[in-house]
Structures are given as C-alpha cells and as structure tokens.
Simulated assay, not measured.
Amino acid sequence: MHSGRLKSVVGAAVLVAAAMTTGTAAAPTAVPVAPAVASSPIQVYGAWHCGDDACTWATVRDMTDFDTNNHWLIDRGDGHPSVNLVVLSFVNPLKLLNGTTDSGDVNGAPVGMNAAVVNYFTSHGIRVMLSIGGITYTGDWDTALTQNAALLGQKAAALATQLGVGIEIDYENSSSPNLTGLQSFISAYRAAHPYDASGADPTARLTLDVAAGDRYLIALDQYATANWLTTSNPVLDYANAMVPSKQPSASSAESNWQEHITGKSNYNPAIGPLAPAKFTGGLYIAEGSQVRPECNNFATSVQNATGSWLQSAAPNGAGTTPGMLGYMFWAAEKPSTRGVTTDPPNTCQGGVGVGSTTYGIPLPMPALRQG
C-alpha cells in the first residue's frame, strides 16, 4: 500500500477511536471544489481547400485522383469524415462579376469548383462553401466593388444556388477597404439568400474572414463587428480569424483570439467586442515546407493545447454563451506552388482526424449557437 494512503487510513482510525472514547463525532474537513468552467462544444471544424494548383482550381479534376489526394477529409480512419466543412479557395471576384470564360474559368467560376467536387464532400455530410478573394485578388475585389458591388453580390448568390454551397468573403484590403461597396454586395446576396439561423439552407451561409487578431484589417474588422456580426441582428453567420504569418504558439493564438472577444476600445473608431459564438480560429496544417502537427500529430498540436480555452472562452461585452465556434485549417491539398501538400503520405488523419474524434465534431454541422 502507498505510504500516503496508509497514513490517511491510520489517521481515520485515530479519529474514529477518539470519537468512540469521547462520544463526539469528528468534524468533517471541508474540501474546496473548483467551480466548473462553462464551455460549449465545437461546431465548426473545417479546412480551406486549395486544390492541386495553389488555389486557382483552374482544371477539371479527375475524381479518382482527387479521392486519392483528399480521402482523409472524408475518412479519418474509421469511415467518419475528419471535418464538417470544406471551403474551396479561391474565386476571383472580378472574373465572377464579368462572367469571364477562359482556360480556367466558366462564367466567372473556376472550372475545378464544379458539382463533382462539391458532391464528393456533401455526399459524406460535409458542408461546402466557396471563398471569394484571398490576398492575391485584393485588387480585383477593389475593382469589382467599385464597378458594381450589388451585381457582384447577385452573381455570388447565383453561383451559390447553382452549386448548393455557401459563400465566404475573403477581402484583405488592410488600408482602405470599400466598405460601402461590400455592404452593397452583402445586401444583394442576402436579398437572394436571407439569413438562416437554422443552417438548413447551405446557400444562406455567408461568412467573412478577418485577421488573426484586431491589429490587421482594422477597418473591416471594426465595421463587421458593429454591423454584420452582432447577436441581436446578425447579417453574416460568423467570421474566421485567419492564420497569422506563421503558426502561432498556443498562447499567441489565444491572445489573438481574445482580441476579438475583448475588442479595441483605444482605437478610433473603436473595435467593439465580438461574441465568441461568432467566430472561428485559424491554424496551419501545411505551412511552407513543413507539415504541422495540426496535420499529423494531434497530441503536440496547437489545437490540442488551445482546445479547452477555445471551448470555454468567456464573452466580454458581446454574446452570452462561452466558447468560440471552432477551428479552420489552412489548407488542404496544395496551398502553394513550392510548399508541402496534404497529399499522401502527408494526409492529416493523425492531426485533424484525431481532433475530430477527440472533440466529437458533429456531422452534419448543426444549427450554430446564436449568442
């Protein structure tokens, strides 16, 4: 028997003996109990997907090859998908506005973002969205919003209807974003696909990318938090806090995400607090020449180290429920021409797949928390 265990047993016997001798009962010792930390389960657990040509999706995929490279997304090893969301990245906003048909696009949409690819995921219960923009197309966002923002919104809505998908806005103008134009884009999209709290209509899912914290894309972040991401009158479903320039440590990731929750009252105009239920946090699975633990080693990953914090992050001026919505991972298959890919043997079952099991990711994605 362990010596500490023996001492406790002997001590208990002495107390009982003393009680029998004196006729009194020993007073129980109060043991402090730590209060339970309120938390919410992860609801969004997704991957941005760049196809096999560094995010252009400019070729029609052979679906046998596509399955070989992406099977880990639909099967984490037990027949269950690793994610409940895939975001195909990127649509060029100016080509979409102009309805461009060329070697890589049809009516403004990349030829690789087709029904076969969408159905590959949706047939396994995985929600699909298309991301419009990305850092490469920032100038094209500016031009398209200036030319006809409302028409761009209508064309995005029509593309969503055609493929049965949602739309993500990735507009990375950090100095002078056209917020009036972006408001017109969103209003036109919502006229076709109204906000749907139930999540039942995939085309109604409209989201926005913001920076990892509040210190970049400041004007966009301020306006979106005040006007599109409120819990009282939501316009967008949620935001994605994107990856920073390199994979953050757990403490840096939490610090970045806390900035959104707290806001920046010292800015002019101030950035208000964002409800934890209104955004996800982004992490790398493949970064430059490195496959990250997020992909192949959940135990040593940032998502493992931040999981408890993310699920219990408390509101700080906006929202009522604890916990961010979940994680987004950058990026599946081939995010750059020179970097690593998540093709075999670098499949992400050991990271994202294990995380899906560990966190009990729901499939299909449920109705999202609204406050």
Rank of each mutant, 00 (worst) to 15 (best):
G153N: 08
A160C: 08
A160F: 09
Q162V: 13
Q162A: 14
L163I: 12
I169L: 03
Y171F: 07
N173G: 05
S174F: 11
S174V: 12
S174Q: 06
S176I: 06
S176Q: 07
S176E: 04
L182W: 04
I186Y: 01
A188S: 13
H193M: 09
D196Q: 05
A197E: 02
G199L: 04
A200Y: 03
D201V: 13
A204F: 01
R205L: 15
D209C: 15
D209G: 14
V210A: 07
D214R: 04
I218M: 05
A219I: 05
L220P: 06
D221G: 13
Y223Q: 03
A224T: 02
N227Y: 03
N227D: 05
W228N: 04
T230K: 02
N233K: 11
D237R: 06
D237G: 13
Y238K: 03
A239Y: 07
A241M: 02
A241Y: 02
V243I: 15
P244H: 00
P244W: 00
K246E: 15
Q247R: 09
P248L: 13
A250K: 01
S251R: 02
A253K: 07
A253Q: 10
N256K: 09
E259S: 15
E259C: 12
E259Q: 15
H260G: 13
H260D: 07
Y267M: 05
N268V: 14
G272M: 00
G272Q: 00
L274M: 09
A275I: 04
P276D: 05
F279A: 02
F279Q: 00
